[in-house]
Amino acid sequence: MASNGYFARLLRGYGRLTIFMIPIGIAINFVGGQIALLLKLPVYLDSIGTILVGATCGSLPGALVGLLSNAINSITSPQTFAYGILSVIFGLLAGWFGRMGWFRSFWLSLLSAIPFALVGGVLGALITIWVFGGLAGDGTGIVIGTLVALGMDLTTANFAAQMPMDILDKVPTVLIVYAIIRGIPKRLFVKLPLGYVYLGKPAPKLAPATAPATTEQQAGPRS
């Protein structure tokens, strides 16, 4: 049956709220970015939703939020699609850190900005080098061009321009994710795949794909 595809099974297995969290995560990515622009902040703040969903629902939903946000962004600025893998990795990492309980602690949340920024900075720069030959047509591209014109070599210029940008972006991102997670009521955590982490419970015994037995039941007999 059509509705029994891989995607459907993934979402069903991940708990019934996950499928409703994904659009919210995508919307959060966009609105975060929009408000950052509106307040003229020099950062993107467009991966809050990816990390939030990753941290509360797990790696795959987080990655999906990242991928879809990127795809939707690509409708109006298609060149951003090349960076889709970054958003996917943010989601995967957030799920992993979430499972390890990092977002329960302020300091560990703050610390998580480093791996996120490293991925964003290093991998982002590498993509710019591989896909666009080191010269992507965006704001950073102009900075890089200037650095090269000043005599820096192209690869170094890419890293030099990306890294600080990403640290500046990921610190407020993880802080707002931490603040939101602090505010999530217990009744919602009960229904989220990684909620057990924040409720201070042991991991469900079964693998996450089959764990919520009642969830499976709720979705109806479909096998």
């Binding site: 919210i24 959060i28 609105v31 939703g49 407020p172 603040a179």
Partner: peptide, 16 residues
């Protein structure tokens, strides 16, 4: 940025 967005995002999550 924080006081504007944190509550808005939180209530969007709980409305799910």
């Amino acid at each position: 940025f924080f006081p504007v967005l944190a509550p808005v995002f939180l209530s969007a999550m709980t409305a799910t």
